[in-house]
């Protein structure tokens, strides 16, 4: 048995030792290890937080960032910001319908008679209509930088929601010893970068971080919340990071709940099999 545990430990230790290293060339303010409502094996999304985060996305981020894998009906899915047990079919959910109906941008389609583009209001089946029709238009409107799609942003960054929070709260004035900073970019302590080329101060103390193309998007109470929750920058950042975590992993709640059930089942099943095994081998000297 001990051998088996050892094998298990080795199997688990090997992947754990392979945490991706920080790039040798770039530095960044360390990603904090925050506690979220969804942290840990039993953590679940906090629906009120997801709603606040969605409000921040809608009012601030969606000006530049698309979220191409989120459809309006996803907002009403189990675990989502507007899920209600009264509307098991999210297409019937009145919040979902109203959000789709009042979305600031319309869906472009081709008129099947004339071949010209027409516009219509989005329905719950549509993707949240993006701010730009394509990547080229997005880059052209943002000084050549493409605002990344947000559907998988949290999943595509080490630290996930902690990384997003870190970025949003680490904009800072350009340090005094920086010379020749690239125009149209903003200093951010959490954005991986290498400032040694611009730094004229002590070479052993190059400031952490780099230049990000996004201007600081949030200020205190740029978005206000109907439930009176704090709208300070750090809280806005937390809420939108939680929403983006949901966008990356909408099935998390179901996954963890199923995981607990499967784990308990397997423990019991292993126990039954073990007793069965001992029973079978009872009279064999081995």
């Amino acid at each position: 048995m001990l051998r088996k545990l050892l094998a298990l430990a080795v199997a688990l230790a090997l992947p754990a030792s392979l945490a991706a290293p920080a790039s040798a060339a770039t530095t960044q303010k360390p990603v904090p290890n925050l506690q979220w409502s969804f942290s840990g094996p039993f953590g679940m999304y906090d629906q009120a937080q997801l709603q606040r985060g969605f409000k921040v996305y809608t009012e601030v981020c969606s000006q530049c960032h698309a979220i191409q894998y989120i459809h309006f009906h996803n907002l009403g899915d189990p675990g989502g910001p507007f899920w209600s047990p009264k509307y098991p079919n999210p297409n019937d959910n009145p919040y979902v319908k109203s959000i789709a109906d009042s979305w600031p941008r319309q869906v472009t389609e081709i008129n099947s008679d004339t071949g010209d583009p027409t516009h219509r209001k989005p329905t719950s089946a549509d993707v949240l209509v993006p701010p730009f029709p394509n990547d080229a238009a997005a880059k052209a409107s943002n000084g050549g930088a493409l605002p990344p799609d947000m559907s998988l942003l949290v999943a595509a960054r080490e630290g996930g929601p902690n990384y997003v929070y870190n970025i949003l709260t680490s904009f800072a004035p350009t340090p005094a010893g920086i010379v020749g900073a690239p125009p149209g970019k903003y200093y951010n302590e959490a954005f991986p970068g290498d400032l040694s080329a611009y730094w004229k101060g002590d070479p052993n103390h190059v400031p952490l971080g780099g230049f990000i193309s996004m201007p600081p998007p949030l200020t205190d109470c740029k978005v206000t919340f109907d439930d009176g929750s704090s709208c300070k920058l750090a809280d806005e950042a937390r809420d939108v990071a939680a929403f983006l975590q949901w966008a990356s992993d909408p099935k998390m709640d179901q996954r963890k709940q199923m995981g607990v059930a499967v784990f308990i089942y397997l423990l019991i099943f292993s126990g039954l099999l073990y007793v069965s095994y001992r029973q079978i081998w009872k009279d064999v000297a081995h």
């Binding site: 089942y265 019991i268 099943f269 039954l272 099999l273 007793v275 069965s276 029973q279």
Partner: peptide, 16 residues
């Protein structure tokens, strides 16, 4: 008693 455990294990397996 010996058979019970095997039946229990097989039933649990079938359920799984």
């Amino acid at each position: 008693r010996r058979n019970f455990i095997h039946i229990a294990a097989i039933t649990a397996a079938a359920g799984g």
